[in-house]
């Protein structure tokens, strides 16, 4: 099997188009995951036991089942109930929902890792609830959240090829479509791997920088 540069030249434009879709799906999915994760984290810490219980087990259910199956669910089951989502929208919702269960744990851990003494100190200084959160808890809780949140962004980027299973033409599917119609597998698949490395290795380096910047003092 010879490496053919003509194939590389002819497949690259569609791969670049696919890469754009991949990046779009990653960004929209990540925003969804960050926002939904916060909602889940707050509901999990709710004083209402029933709300906390239901939220905990729903998010565990999502976390313990494969993203691929959830994507099938959104894409094939919802239309039976009259909800028609485009493949891209279904994919982004699936991605965001799945990873919101991960980000919610980041938020929860960030808040729980603030030492108890900080709460007590705020209380003894007669801080209101707003002031406690605004000036004591959140400034200490938020910085350690950045590194794991950045890492989940990279993870989501690498999970987007799953969207190809519900016909989204992202990077991987673009290569697959080309491969199947030209019967060339070596170059497109290798290029896809290369594209992923080209994005994810610099991204991992940035994530490492963030990690070092926001490292807890101890």
């Amino acid at each position: 099997m010879e490496w053919d540069w003509n194939v590389v030249a002819s497949v690259t434009p569609s791969l670049l188009n696919g890469l754009i879709v991949t990046v779009q799906a990653t960004i929209v999915g990540a925003v969804l995951a960050y926002v939904l994760g916060l909602v889940i984290a707050i509901l999990k810490m709710s004083g209402n036991k029933a709300v906390a219980f239901i939220t905990y087990w729903s998010s565990e259910f999502i976390r313990r089942t494969p993203l691929l199956v959830q994507l099938y669910f959104l894409f094939y089951v919802l239309p039976d109930f009259g909800i028609f989502l485009s493949p891209f929208v279904a994919g982004v919702i699936g991605l965001g929902l799945h990873f919101s269960t991960y980000t919610s744990e980041v938020y929860r851990a960030g808040i729980e890792n603030v030492p108890k003494g900080q709460w007590e100190a705020a209380r003894s200084l007669n801080y209101s609830a707003y002031h406690t959160w605004r000036f004591v808890i959140l400034p200490q809780a938020i910085p350690p959240m950045f590194p794991p949140l950045a890492n989940y962004l990279i993870t989501m980027f690498k999970e987007t090829p799953l969207l190809s299973a519900i016909t989204v033409v992202e990077l991987f599917n673009a290569a697959n479509i080309y491969s199947n119609s030209h019967y060339k597998y070596l170059e497109p698949m290798t290029l896809v791997g290369l594209f992923f490395l080209l994005v994810s290795i610099p991204a991992a380096m940035i994530a490492l920088k963030i990690e070092n910047k926001y490292k807890p003092l101890n």
């Binding site: 987007t160 991987f172 698949m189 490395l197 290795i201």
Partner: peptide, 21 residues
């Protein structure tokens, strides 16, 4: 870096479709 940097599904397709070539 290679196995963490690329997607699992891409690796799987590579092993199933490209390695035979």
């Amino acid at each position: 870096e290679f196995f963490r940097g690329t997607s699992a599904i891409v690796q799987m397709f590579f092993m199933y479709f490209v390695l035979p070539l």
